[in-house]
Design a protein around this nucleic acid. Sequence first.
DNA 1: TCTGGGGTCCTAGGACCC
DNA 2: TCTGGGGTCCTAGGACCC
Length: 404
Amino acid sequence: MDAFYASVELLRYPQLKGLPVVIGGGRRREDDMLARLRLEQPDYAWSEHKLNEIPLDVFPRISGYTGRGVITTATYAARQFGVGSAMGVMKAAKLCPDAILLPVDFDQYRHYSQRFKAIIREIAPVMENRGVDEVYLDFTDVPGGQREDGRVLARLIQKAIYDDTGLTCSVGVAPNKLLAKMASEFNKPNGIAIVQPEDLQTMIWPLPCRKVNGIGPKAEAKLAQHDIHTIGDLAQRDRLWLMATFGKSYGAWLHDAAHGKDDRPVAMSSEPVSISRETTFAHDLHAVRDREALSAIFTRLCEQVAADLQRKGYVGKTIGIKLRYDNFQSVTRDQTLERHVQHAPAIRQAAGQCLKRVDLQRRLRLLGVRVGSLMKLEDWQAQGVRADTSGLAAQTESLFGDNF
DNA sequence: TCTGGGGTCCTAGGACCC
DNA sequence: TCTGGGGTCCTAGGACCC
């Protein structure tokens, strides 16, 4: 198999490239930011179609930010300061007070995501989604795909995406998904990198283990304890020793990954396993003192999950909740129903039962609702099973009232 | 001024069944 | 005098990814 890994870069303001920019914080829209900037700079005649003309001093700086948000992504200039994904915005502000802070705008990302994926699919139809800004491609059967080891196709894709969206894109080409993903990071942003099987020792083995997709902070720390730091270090270790130390399955996978082995196909479609909604409160809430606020949030989460299920055409059988306490400890509870459900009252009823099984004395920072064991609505209807939501709405009020 | 939101997959124990 | 054993489902937690 010949695999591509492509990821688009979501920064759309050319004048910000090369500067420390952080995208993150609360849920605001980029439209709102532009509207506010327009208010603040009424004399300046720019439009959304000329994003590159917005002067630098108009963009908000990170230093004015207050709140609990985290960073979604950061430019390389910002990363020089130690700023990175998933870091609290407040912490980033300390590390790099002059950084520009752009709002996260998932609606806009989804829009651009659909566009760039549609463009890619026209060129290379065997495509696997990896979130909003990344895809895998199998270009084995794409005509002309093998020219210059895939470089011609990579350039074609980059140009097509840029012409339509103005977004740049990094591409990695390799014999499998594991290596293509690593290759895509070699020349970011807007680059192309090709890794051949014979490049394994020179290009892959010197990299830290953490670069392997699937080795996270915990595994990295445990590997380091055994003096394994690079992928090359890992490749030298005995397969059976790895299996004994890291578990049969994970140890074997580590050994394969270090040797560049990966036979996962590019999966064009996959059914969701669960659908959930969760929210972190602006301030920690107490189950007794803030009962009404929590109750309203809980109801809204159930309604949002129900709306997501209906919009996407699924029913679910396992209803769960997630709580995060003020010390960041998370707990989950779930319950599998006898019948699949899809509507908010039934979800709220079951989720309310789950709430009764957790400690509600401690302050909470997050509440979430999840529906799993999903089934396509049409398959479920084909079985002739009928939803039983009658009467649940009436029960819900009293059950819920007992919990918060 | 710590630590979002939406997912997947794995593990491990207990229940239950044959 | 006993402590089989495999398969599946359910539940809770945790690692990891984007």
